[in-house]
Nucleic acid binder design. Sequence first.
DNA 1: CATAATTAATATGTACTACATATTTACAAA
DNA 2: TTTGTAAATATGTAGTACATATTAATTATG
Lengths: 234, 234
Amino acid sequence: MAIIGDLSLDLDKISSDTMADVVEMRLRDYFKKKSFKPGDALPKEQELADALGVSRNVLREALSRLRMLGMVETKKKRGMILSSPDVLGGFERVLDPLIISADALQDLFELRLILEMGLADVLYLNLNDQSIHELEMIANNEKKKNKEIFRIANEIAFHGKLYEMAGNDTVKRFQHMLLPVFGFVLQLENEFVSGKVTHLDLVEILKSGTKDDFRNGMYDHLKPHFDRLEAIKK
Amino acid sequence: MAIIGDLSLDLDKISSDTMADVVEMRLRDYFKKKSFKPGDALPKEQELADALGVSRNVLREALSRLRMLGMVETKKKRGMILSSPDVLGGFERVLDPLIISADALQDLFELRLILEMGLADVLYLNLNDQSIHELEMIANNEKKKNKEIFRIANEIAFHGKLYEMAGNDTVKRFQHMLLPVFGFVLQLENEFVSGKVTHLDLVEILKSGTKDDFRNGMYDHLKPHFDRLEAIKK
DNA sequence: CATAATTAATATGTACTACATATTTACAAA
DNA sequence: TTTGTAAATATGTAGTACATATTAATTATG
């Protein structure tokens, strides 16, 4: 006798791609196959629609997606050109803590910790006295202001500066996008404790310490977060 | 006398948002303001279009973007629901080494190195004998196969397994998406040398070494890449 | 002849209409 | 109670029309 278990495990959902989904993929393939490069002019909408056998409506729905990602730009009469997308644009649009899954939130929380811990090597490649001095100014500023109220702003300023010093704009932006997620997770846990190593301590390490010193300092600075992770994993 | 420099630096481009751009933003704001959560039903297309004062066409172009990102799903008659987007979907669609800028390529190359170096802490939180054993199998397998031909596949398998062991699906996928970029940059440089520390060495460290040992081992494993970075930065 | 002004041509942006299709709901039939 | 049928409805798709901005061509003008 046949055993009927969870149907959803045995029967895959019927994939109902719309024409816009298909056209989006086909356009991608077309650009690749023809090795279009940024700046190259694309055929006009009606030609593409005719070639694909769809209405101009459907084609524009697909184009709208590519335009959002920055893959294509259009000028009124000149037509469309392929362009260099902002690699983080699509990521940014989706990063709302209220709508992404709890698992993804947790993963992104960890991702930021991974970034902070991995930054040392690239950071030390770009280190110079001027930027260390600027970082120190930021850390010093924290003492003046009300610690509780400006705590989050201070965190953002200091760590953001670290990424800036690493000289990698994409990673800096990336980390900045992760901040709301990070804050959201912490808020859920009602946990705002600080590690033993302060921002000023980290500055001192940058002045005279090694990469390893910095990594260890950063770990201690982030220790409460890692402790939280450890507690969860068990 | 007025000095005329680079015009593009002095004159901002006129922002010519299309209706679809505006509607996309307005829908986002609407979802937030009404605190829609995944699963909630959205008004029907015609109602939204009427409310926004645009044609159903324009509204659908905006919706098409949100659908692509996985923010909304639609069923034929039931209407639309807000849903949990795949946080990396938008990123994945744009990661074509042939169209993203050279700067972004370089940044992403560094980003992968940062991830590898930062992985240790999260990895050690999840470590267990079983997964170490599986990793060892992968590393051992490399010796059997033709090293040159399978070199890239081996790299992907080993490092992919490391991310899997870290127990963070998002980061694992993220790293996997970065691989083509990584490979592309290396290919440009015609550089495929390995560090002194092999995959098997890393496995041994995982068995009996500390987090710091692992980080140092990973750094040595990736040393050629860091050397390349250092050469570029100067 | 060179520059400015005008006109024509064209591709995109937007709106509107129409209809097929899938899915729900309700109801009828077995 | 389950199954089958019919009506209702929201989305998916096609097609037409036109406004607008931009380019190209043409004419006017000094």
